[in-house]
């Protein structure tokens, strides 16, 4: 069983939900990225999504675009991201790490070379936002061969007839994009998201995480009542951007703790 599936199984046994924070590798620098990963895991993150900076982040809003630009200004590339994961694994063998980014850096490295190196570094899942299932066959083959879970998106515009198409290739968990738009856009419509998650249950056979538009502890709590995982990205990246030099790690840890307890309280109250 993959590290991702194992974590979801454990959480489910305890009636808990996964908290998945996203940060961009190399923002503000690679050393801080490593510290942030450890701090987030300690503060209650169950899985870590690590953004691979890309020059043309079409699916991202301004906050994550800027973080990508900050990382690229230091020349951070896919190989550096893998090196950070390998470093993280020296101390943390439990917290799954999912790389999130765009296809071209992976394509440039070569699918097989990438999958091999990612496995060696200790990466557990890979989400390439601009590679839908119809184009993903060669990539997923390479990832399966190296026991890495390909993560796929479902969106508010995905017709139900496509659920099986996505589910057939997906492993680990399904990432439901909670709104039509880019990362960090408007606040999501909780009732709408709940209905969609309901429709997916039983048709995808994997845990379902919800992301895009979760701005604070309150919306995380609301979503956690019906989703298996809550992904928080832009809000954390914004905290890193706004933090005075040297304070990013503490601020992010505090934010994770706040969201963690809101999620747990919400789910606990429900039970």
């Amino acid at each position: 069983m993959s590290r991702i599936s194992h974590v979801f199984e454990q959480l489910q046994q305890h009636g808990r939900r996964a908290l998945i924070p996203f940060i961009t590798s190399g923002d503000p620098d690679l050393a801080t990225t490593l510290d942030l990963m450890h701090a987030m895991a300690q503060a209650g993150a169950d899985l870590i999504e690590l953004g691979v900076p890309f020059s043309d982040p079409m699916a991202d809003g301004p906050t994550i675009q800027r973080s990508s630009e900050r990382a690229l200004a230091q020349g951070v590339g896919l190989r550096d991201v893998l090196a950070v994961v390998a470093e993280f694994r020296r101390k943390d063998g439990q917290t799954p790490v999912v790389l999130m980014g765009y296809l071209n850096p992976v394509e440039r490295m070569g699918y097989d070379a990438f999958a091999r190196a990612a496995r060696q570094a200790g990466v557990d899942g890979v989400l390439t936002v601009d590679c839908p299932p119809e184009e993903a066959g060669p990539l997923t083959d390479a990832l399966y061969a190296h026991a890495i879970d390909p993560i796929f998106l479902l969106s508010p515009t995905t017709p139900e007839s496509r659920f099986p198409v996505v589910a057939r290739l997906a492993r680990g968990f399904i990432y439901y994009v909670s709104l039509k738009g880019v990362t960090g856009a408007a606040t999501l419509d909780v009732a709408d998201v709940r209905n969609r998650i309901h429709a997916m249950r039983g048709r995808v056979g994997l845990p379902i995480g919800v992301g895009f538009g979760i701005r604070d502890a309150q919306s995380a709590q609301a979503v956690a009542r019906f989703a298996d995982a809550v992904v928080v990205g832009s809000r954390i990246v914004q905290a890193i951007e706004e933090a005075p030099r040297g304070e990013a790690v503490d601020r992010v840890a505090a934010l994770i703790r706040e969201i963690r307890s809101a999620i747990d309280a919400g789910v606990g109250a429900q039970a």
Binding site: P132, E134, E135, T157, T158, V177
Partner: peptide, 20 residues
């Protein structure tokens, strides 16, 4: 049918745009 010219072309977009 899927927009490929040999290995080129295709449809590399986020899930939200696939239906459109």
């Amino acid at each position: 049918e899927r927009g490929h010219f040999g290995p080129y072309g295709g449809r590399f977009v986020a899930e939200t745009l696939v239906q459109a």
